[in-house]
Design a protein around this nucleic acid. Structure first.
Length: 253
DNA sequence: AAGTCGCACAACCGCCGCACA
DNA sequence: CTGTGCGGCGGTTGTGCGACT
């Protein structure tokens, strides 16, 4: 029993959006807000699938989009976030006001990958290309090595100095990742939720949740000041990695 | 001027997780 | 508890355009 398609494909337009379609979509959302994407196309008089409308709105038509070139600051922020989060484009985009996950994903694949390669860094692992296994590094650069669980390769910065000491004497993880240092990544995340070495493995969904909480729970702008760690709530300083950022939440506008 | 190539980015596809009945 | 519908996400593809030969 297959799932029904998200829309009646036979009667939907595909490909590039026309000006008229854009206008209809904008007018409808202005009038009714973002709601049920599935029913939106019909209500707005569009021969498009709901997903397509959502994508078009989020990636192109939203009024709070920046458009235009990425700044150097944004470049560096993306690189840092990618080293922490991996290919979690939506999480990365949430830290870059006016940028969409799709835009960042495209930008990564076209610009930043090359930028990292030119720095001698593997864009997948953020490790130096000539570090360790040469074959592995070059293969990874060619995208032949799948990232393990799509998780960030680097966990640096989430440990205190004392944790660091502990880890040097211990686990496999310490030898495989913590022993290595990302040269240009210094987030000064010296405070953190307690590092739980013996933490039982999380279920995949929980793991992702936890991952997000780790990032959210740390204010990366306040040089790790503990006062800004407020559980899984955003720090109110609105200053992320040195960039003034509003946390993007167009849904509440 | 015509053809080819590579880049940039918009759009699509398929899967997953969550909410709900 | 299970099945279904929906929104959301990440990977991939398609297409337009400029640079180059």
């Amino acid at each position: 029993m297959g799932r029904s398609p998200c829309c009646e494909k036979a009667h939907t337009n595909k490909g590039a959006w026309t000006k008229e379609e854009d206008d209809r979509l904008i007018a409808y959302i202005r009038g009714h807000g973002e709601g049920c994407w599935r029913s939106l196309p019909k209500a707005a008089g569009l021969l498009r699938c709901g997903k397509s409308c959502r994508l078009r709105w989020i990636n192109y038509l939203r009024p709070d989009l920046k458009r235009g070139n990425f700044t150097d600051d944004e470049d560096e922020l993306i690189i840092k976030l990618h080293s922490l989060l991996g290919n979690k484009w939506s999480l990365i985009a949430a830290r870059l006001p006016g940028r969409t996950d799709n835009e960042i994903k495209n930008y990564w694949n076209t610009h930043i990958r090359r930028k990292l390669l030119s720095r001698g860094l593997d864009p997948v692992t953020h490790r130096p290309l000539n570090a360790g296994n040469d074959n592995a590094a070059s293969d990874a650069a060619a995208d032949h090595i799948p990232r393990i669980s799509n998780k960030p390769a680097v966990v640096i910065g989430f440990r205190s100095a004392s944790e660091e000491d502990k880890s040097t004497s211990g686990s496999e993880e310490s030898s495989s990742t913590a022993a290595w240092r990302l040269p240009d990544l210094n987030l000064e995340l010296c405070i953190s939720p307690p590092f739980q070495q013996q933490e039982p493995p999380l279920m995949p969904a929980k793991r992702e949740e936890e991952e997000e909480r780790r990032v959210q729970g740390l204010c990366l702008s306040c040089s790790g000041a503990a006062i800004n760690v407020v559980g899984n709530k955003e720090c109110k300083c609105r200053d992320f990695l040195g960039l003034k950022t509003g946390i993007l939440d167009y849904r509440n506008q």
